[in-house]
Amino acid sequence: MIHGNRKRRAAAGAFTLIEVLLSMGIGILIMTSVLSSLDYTQRAVDAIHNVIETETAGPRVMQLIREDLSRLAVYDVREYRLYQGKNLSEGPNDADRFDFVAYRRSTRPFHDFVREESVWAPLVEVGYRLRRNPQLYDFLELYRREDFLQDEEPFKDGEFTLLYDRVLNFDVRYAARPESDIRWEDEWDSEEREGLFFAMEIRLEIEVQPRRSKESLGILGANRARLTFEDVYAVPEDIRWVMRNRIHPYLPGADEAGTGDGGGDAAQEGDGPNVIGGGGGGGLGRGGAGGDRRGGRTDRGGGDGSGGGGGP
């Protein structure tokens, strides 16, 4: 009898109901575990993407601005034309812009066809501008402007690089001096003010694009789509002093080349005004750098060294 049953089952090639149910149960268990694990892994990947988006996009832009500002080209500035910040808006959004000259290596080289080599500029015009995002009309695009070396128009032209395309507001304010009840101004023109601001406050508001779902945002607490980054950049006072007093760098060995001493001695005495650079005798005025940096009055009447021809 048993022998007959086995023969029938073998001929049918089938499983019993309990075997099928058991294998289905195991299959479902495995599939559920694997799928839920995959889903969680995907959420974790998305969450990490969101973290990267929230903690790198804004801070990276702020850091770039700060690095540019820390290299303000304060030496040999003609007519104090170094920095220009304007208070602008694009519809309801703040879209301030600023431009300046910085001692930064250019990001793109210039090809010198004579020497057949690529040349990077040690000095560039830099600017930060915004415009309406043509695809996402609620947002602004933030661009960094860079122009090779410095020309007659230091606040115009150049090449633009997109930094971020979902900016909501970009607000910049300036303070002329430190005080307890600090007075912020919306614009700054170093030519008009004949000097640099004491500090600038930058406020950048962006909206990050969550890759996927609210659930993924909840995993790491990175659940904020709109983020505001604020920073204050205080220009070091010695940098402001160089700019305000129009200091020209002194090159070792410049005397041997027959360059003028300018008003350097007068400045070094410290009592009188800081006559910087002399009256255009030589190119490399050396005054001022050894002068009294504690607030000697500036006399620009003596001419600046940059006008003397051949200045660095």
């Binding site: 002329a176 001096r177 430190p178 307890s180 601001f197 004491f198 205080a234 002093w241 500036t298």
Partner: peptide
């Protein structure tokens, strides 16, 4: 800078008053 930590405006004036830009 110590003047910034202590918010000592007088010390700042003494050191850096010559840095003040022109008024608007």
């Amino acid at each position: 800078p110590t003047w910034a930590v202590e918010q000592d405006w007088e010390a700042w004036e003494e050191l850096w008053a010559g840095n003040l830009p022109l008024d608007v």
